[in-house]
Design a protein around this nucleic acid. Structure first.
Ligand SMILES: [Mn+2]
Ligand SMILES: [Mn+2]
Ligand SMILES: [Mn+2]
Ligand SMILES: [Mn+2]
Lengths: 217, 217
DNA sequence: ACATTAATTTAGGTAAGCCTAAATTAATCA
DNA sequence: TGATTAATTTAGGCTTACCTAAATTAATGT
């Protein structure tokens, strides 16, 4: 089987492909907090094993084989996040570290038990899709709050989970996954928002609004 | 923090002290499935860090510091075993591997959540005591079934968890932790036993009976 | 086209945790 | 007591996954 290190490389490179046009050595080094020279080493190793395609000085791509591995790890990560929230009552801003480690030691049997106990969930606590056992993932492109017109009633369907501080803040104002809210005002000066959650008006900066994805109801 | 390897050495050496008069390099090597020469290396390292006391060519002992570490790991191991059985519906003969890995990546926060969800259990699924958060462990010496006279009604309070095959077999005949049974007959020829579990008579060899601990009811 | 600069790779190391083979020590028994 | 044997330690290596510093390459701007 693959080491923890290898699994983290594959998962992160796969995820970077969604946000970067070219996945470069430096971008990987940055994400994994590892020196660029070390990334080059590992990238060469993973290429020779058929998990990546690497054009020196150009960038890196995951192969089909690499993608399959990445999706297995992502499935475990997201199932475990769900489990932490639903069964162990963790709050959604304090689960990433735990899941980051657990994704690597979760056996097939464990994965299945957790999936059963949770009733086969299709999204994690931040609204990210959970790949199926066969490695199929359904990407849905939701609109960020910034795309929504004043007066619209929306439901939160996904929140960028990269910054726990954002999750912590929006929890405090009552904004969770599935929360419904009305967009009261977009402030033209800086593209920030006033929304109504329950009976209260709440403020969301542009940066926040960009990380909150919604559907009109 | 300590590595997985270090944690496994400490836990296993601590546990070996209960069953061996002297814990020697070879005994440790055998238990951990590591070459004796490697054990010597690690033992020297752990001694220099104050976790063990080592008299070359003689044997090894855990210090108070080493014992504290060992008990933390054992607590995590046993809590997680309990969780696997109670919440994830694993059977008691298929949990040791999972717990063996998880004991090392379980954070304090996780330990606490699990302890809460389980309602602060004091024994694991095999009847072994769970050390308290402060590292206090209550050893109770129960009688093995081999010490019980014919005709006695007993309750199972602990089963040696070292051999999954034993656990698997006794589950099949309806013998679990807390099961009550009547000792019908001790066969003098080989010290095996006939017991009554529910309405059925069941056979237990001497080796089995030695691993099943009971209390008279 | 060509020099500068930024990204990337190469070269040379380190630490942890393992290994095998050889040397040493302690225990046993003739 | 001295020789044999079994356990243990020492010596020397290997692999993984990192690191820093130096060399190389590609991209950019004049
Ligand atoms: Mn990870
Ligand atoms: Mn998530
Ligand atoms: Mn372990
Ligand atoms: Mn147990």
């Amino acid at each position: 089987m693959s080491s923890i290190s290898v699994e983290n490389y594959l998962k992160n490179i796969y995820e970077l492909e969604a946000s970067e046009k070219k996945v470069t050595t430096n971008i990987i080094a940055d994400k994994l907090k590892i020196a660029p020279a070390s990334v080059t080493d590992m990238v060469k190793k993973l290429s020779s094993k058929g998990f990546l395609r690497h054009v020196p000085y150009k960038g890196v791509e995951v192969t089909e084989k690499g993608k399959r591995s990445a999706l297995k790890i992502i499935r475990k990560h997201r199932l475990w996040e769900m489990f932490l929230v639903e069964v162990l009552h963790f709050s959604w801003d304090k689960i990433d570290d735990e899941a980051e480690a657990f994704e690597h030691i979760m056996s097939e049997r464990m994965e299945q038990k957790i999936d059963e106990v949770l009733g086969h969930p299709v999204v994690d606590p931040h609204g990210d899709p959970i790949p199926s056992k066969k490695g199929i993932i359904r990407h849905i492109e939701y609109d960020p709050l910034t795309k929504v017109e004043e007066g619209t009633v929306v439901q939160v369907v996904r929140v960028n989970d990269a910054h726990p501080e954002l999750l912590e803040y929006i929890s405090k104002i009552g904004l969770f996954l599935k929360t419904k809210m009305t967009v009261l005002q977009r402030i033209k000066f800086d593209n920030s928002f006033i929304v109504k959650i329950g009976s209260k008006k709440q403020f969301l900066s542009q940066r926040m609004a960009e990380s909150i994805f919604v559907q009109r109801v």
